[in-house]
């Protein structure tokens, strides 16, 4: 018996993503206008080339609320248990149900960046890799924004999104998450070590409900101490 109450697939072109040079430079760590040459030039060049190599696809599935329950450190969907840890469970607690999602920008940009990183232009390769990572995040946010329309019909709001591998949720739980989707959904597959292919993909859950809210400072419940975004936040950027 299906436990999905609503499913929606999305696609978008690179041009639809809210992605400008400042965001790419910030993701590499540079504060406003402080990146040395040739980094800003390479970012511009990568932004111009990216549309040809990037196809954003995603699927968002809302689980039947009668099947979903949230414990102290887990979320259950019928017999399927996500051991999310306390931090995520606390954020999801007030949700009426959860939405599980997969999103990818495809393998195009990662293929180019990998060749450059291992070839004669690692700086350019790194710039494209960073752009691809930011494009993936932007695609998830774009599609999650579309899902808000569905939420509005139910007077629901959304929590932050949470992914296996973050906030104390083991990346091994990708296998449970992927069990909710048909094989090869959006062209995404999972390796034995739970690495997604294409690498520039994001999977996760979002809590939905009348009494949930999105926290403005997700670093506070993330455990990645060495994350560049945390370091920049601490530095006051």
């Amino acid at each position: 018996m299906s436990t999905i109450s609503f499913s929606q697939e999305f696609s978008a072109s690179f041009e639809e993503l809210p992605l400008g040079p400042d965001r790419i430079l910030a993701a590499m760590g540079y504060p406003d206008s402080a990146a040395p040459a040739p980094v800003p030039e390479l970012v511009q060049e990568a932004l111009c080339a990216a549309p040809k190599h990037c196809t954003c696809r995603g699927i968002f599935q809302v689980l039947q609320s009668s099947n979903v329950s949230v414990g102290k450190d887990f979320i259950r969907n019928g017999d399927l248990r996500f051991s999310t840890g306390k931090m995520i469970a606390a954020q999801i607690k007030k949700s009426e149900t959860i939405c599980v999602f997969l999103t990818t920008i495809g393998p195009g940009l990662e293929t180019i960046s990998r060749a450059l990183l291992h070839g004669d232009d690692p700086v350019k390769g790194y710039v494209i890799d960073t752009l691809a990572s930011e494009a993936t995040e932007a695609a998830v946010d774009l599609f999650a924004g579309h899902m808000l329309e569905y939420c509005a019909e139910n007077n629901w709001k959304m929590t932050n999104r949470f992914s296996p591998g973050y906030c104390g949720w083991s990346v091994a739980e990708q296998k449970n998450l992927f069990s909710l989707f048909p094989e090869n959904t959006c062209g995404i597959t999972l390796s034995e070590s739970c690495l997604m292919h294409p690498i520039k993909s994001v999977s996760g859950i979002i809590g939905l409900g009348k009494n949930v809210k999105k926290q403005p400072y997700p670093c506070e419940f993330c455990t990645m101490n060495n994350c560049i975004k945390r370091k920049l936040k601490e530095k006051g950027q």
Binding site: M28, G29, A35, P122, V123, Y126, K235
Partner: peptide, 14 residues
């Protein structure tokens, strides 16, 4: 010290 970033390090390495 987060005063330079990966591209700077890559350029130096080159």
């Amino acid at each position: 010290q987060n005063k330079v970033f990966v591209p700077d390090l890559l350029m130096s390495a080159k």
